[in-house]
């Protein structure tokens, strides 16, 4: 793409692109934690499981704790990283 096109691009797209990347980053973090806890703690024999609040530890961490953590992460991302922009065209040029 040439210089001129870059200059003309809707400035709101810069924000939008960044936020899309944040969404991708959230999924990656979510996946790694979910996978790591589930198979890191849960792949041994069932007799040797630890338990937290009655749940097997792998389940407690990967399905409950990670879910709550992602809630917090989403709240953090939205509050501090996402920007409000007007969606409508302000002036038809």
């Amino acid at each position: 793409m040439n210089q001129q096109e870059k200059r003309m691009e809707d400035p709101r797209y810069k924000i939008a692109n960044k936020e899309a990347l944040i969404g991708v980053a959230l999924v990656v973090v979510n996946f790694i934690l979910w996978y790591g806890f589930a198979y890191g703690l849960g792949s041994g024999p069932v007799e040797e499981y630890d338990y937290i609040f009655g749940f097997p530890a792998w389940f407690f961490y990967s399905c409950i704790a990670v879910t709550v953590f992602i809630f917090l992460l989403v709240i953090f991302a939205v509050k501090f990283l996402f920007k409000e922009v007007p969606l409508d065209e302000e002036d038809e040029k």
Binding site: R12, Y13, I15, A16, N17, E19, A20, I22, G23, V24, L26, V27, I70, V74, V85, L87
Partner: peptide
């Protein structure tokens, strides 16, 4: 969160 953030504002 994925659908709304990826399709998002764009």
């Amino acid at each position: 969160y994925f659908v709304l953030s990826v399709l998002g504002k764009k």
